[in-house]
Design a binder for these strands. Structure first.
Lengths: 222, 222
DNA sequence: CCCAACTTGCTATACAGCAAGCAAGTCCTC
DNA sequence: GAGGACTTGCTTGCTGTATAGCAAGTTGGG
């Protein structure tokens, strides 16, 4: 994950910029892999090539380091969402092309940034209390929602429609990444097989396009 | 979650049946809530109304207790999948009605069994190594896959189609449950609001039906 | 020589697992 | 049928290990 978030690195925080960055990188990787509880500051220090005390020295406490990781991460995500929206606005394509492009780009983004997905999954399971204290994540979500609503000119009488669609796109893209070791294995799918990711992307795009632009209204079963 | 899995409770395992059941119930709840690492045998004992040593006495080790929880859980799930499949087979409805019924039932099932969802999510994040040792989970997945393939008479030339569809159904249903404290909050959705779950179910059914029965073939964007 | 950037020593806490203890039966023998 | 031997079901004490955080120490550049 690239790095945009100057306030976390310079300012008059303790430690040098290079060390703080190395610690953040190591912490992001380890927190994403093992979660907050199972990651020790000792391990973070070792992975960053510094002593076990340095992460605490640079970031105050383990919880503060974790929050800093989330902040940097969502600062990047927010920037990605914004730039994606601007590109979509400028493209002048038809609604279905734009939607397919959004899904495709999002799919590629999370495939390339597994740390991001895993960090949020850990947050989801542990209550999301740290994420709550990181404003950019709400801004990113709201902007994604607005982009979807605008671009597709969704019916303003149903404000929940865009939200459901966004939830669906995210869920469809995330699921195979998150559950590669559980569901996919149980189903006999190898997520590393050549073509799997592309087939998945295609499936998601087809599903979302047909569901959104067709708009059938099926009755619930009794 | 109901209880089918006699071998875990009687046999010549240590402890009385009632105590083992109480410990399993408490452990399922706590492991689902906090995960394996963050749950202590002390807490399990207290929650079960026994001493801190009893969980270890009855199940051997913390890891063994955890495995027993997963086994009981998937024994139940496997039974639910089987009975659902039999009901679908016997219904004689059209493919779209059957699919809508499957999705609706599955949605209701996971809404009523959050422990199941959370236990698997924890497994997914921690590598799924314990789940790997619990055969019923593969059997349940395979049977669900076979049911979907049969019922919808999916093209046997594309064996991955049923798997992608199953992944999509599961992902669409799970996502709002798992991310009620992260995404939903960021999007300003209250998952406890009256009607949210029904609206979600409707959205998922519409999406899956239109995507499956229409079968458009949209090109990927360049 | 001094200050920032680290490192190392220390303490308190938490937890899993083992082993010993204990109380309430159950069986076995006379 | 009584009394001791033994089992079952559970509890409590103990030990080793891991970790967060603080405080004192160290080193290198300006």
């Amino acid at each position: 994950m690239a790095s945009v978030a100057p306030h976390l690195l310079d300012a008059d925080q303790p430690g040098s910029r290079a060390t703080r960055e190395a610690v953040l990188d190591a912490a992001e990787r380890l927190f994403a892999e093992r979660g907050f509880e199972a990651t020790s500051l000792h391990d973070v220090g070792t992975a960053a090539g510094v002593s076990r005390g340095t992460p605490g020295y640079c970031f105050g406490s383990k919880a503060d380091l974790y929050r800093a990781v989330l902040e940097r991460c969502f600062s990047d995500v927010r920037a990605a969402v914004r730039s994606g929206r601007e590109r979509a606005l400028a493209s002048g394509e038809s609604a279905d092309k734009v939607l397919a492009g959004i899904v495709s780009e999002y799919f590629d983004f999370i495939t390339a940034n597994p740390n991001f997905v895993r960090l949020i999954e850990w947050e989801a399971l542990t209550g999301g209390h740290t994420l709550e204290a990181v404003p950019p994540h709400v801004e990113a979500a709201q902007e994604a929602l607005a982009a979807l609503s605008d671009e597709l000119a969704l019916d303003p009488d149903h404000p929940g429609e865009a939200a459901h669609l966004l939830l669906s796109v995210i869920g469809l893209c995330w699921f195979p990444l998150v559950h590669s070791q559980t569901m996919l294995r149980a189903l006999g799918i190898d997520p590393a097989a050549p073509g799997f990711l592309q087939a998945r992307k295609r499936h998601v795009i087809d599903l979302v396009l047909s569901g959104t632009l067709g708009r059938p209204h099926t009755r619930l079963p009794s």
